[in-house]
Simulated assay, not measured.
Amino acid sequence: MSSRESLRKHADLVDRMATSLGVDLQEEAIAGVISVDEITDAVLRCTDCPNPDHCVNALANQAVGGKPPEYCRNQDLLKKLVP
């Protein structure tokens, strides 16, 4: 997978994970709660995950359960944003 494709895949995973937790990253950025740089960093952290397919499956099965998975490299950020 090219680096561009990988970034797109992980950007989608970060956004879908946030959405599944009730967080709209775009709205949070507009409101100044999170910066665009923080979102970019979250995507880059996600690219370091050794098993992104686990998130793909959890999101597909709606098995996130209201909190980010323990293995998620963005769990601290997402916990901060969850309403």
Rank of each mutant, 00 (worst) to 15 (best):
M17F: 02
T40V: 10
K80T: 13
K80F: 05
K67G: 09
P69I: 10
G32R: 03
E5K: 01
R73H: 12
D15M: 14
E70V: 12
G66I: 00
K67C: 02
L25V: 10
L59Y: 02
D15G: 10
C72I: 10
E38N: 06
A29S: 11
I30W: 13
I30C: 09
L21R: 07
I30V: 12
C46S: 13
L77E: 00
V33D: 00
A63E: 15
K9S: 08
A31N: 12
K67A: 15
L25S: 01
D53K: 07
R16Q: 14
L81M: 08
A42F: 05
V43A: 12
S3Q: 11
E5C: 00
C46V: 03
V82A: 09
T40S: 12
A18P: 04
A60N: 07
C55A: 09
C72A: 09
A18R: 01
A42D: 03
R16P: 03
R16T: 02
R16D: 14
P69T: 08
V43I: 15
A63C: 03
N74S: 05
N61L: 07
K9A: 11
A60T: 10
L7Y: 06
A31C: 14
A29I: 15
L21E: 13
V36G: 02
T47H: 06
V43E: 08
V43P: 06
L44C: 04
E38Q: 15
T47R: 00
A60D: 11
I30S: 11
D15E: 13
P52A: 02
D24Q: 14
V14S: 13
Q75F: 08
L21S: 08
M17V: 13
R45C: 06
K9V: 12
L25D: 02
A60L: 04
A60Q: 09
A63N: 14
C49H: 08
A18V: 13
G22W: 01
V43S: 04
S20L: 08
Y71G: 00
R16Y: 03
G22F: 01
L78Q: 12
V56I: 09
E70A: 15
L21H: 03
T40A: 14
A11I: 02
R16A: 07
V33E: 02
V36T: 09
V82F: 01
L59H: 08
C55E: 01
K67F: 08
P68G: 14
G22D: 07
A60F: 06
V33Q: 05
C46D: 05
C55S: 02
E70H: 11
G32M: 12
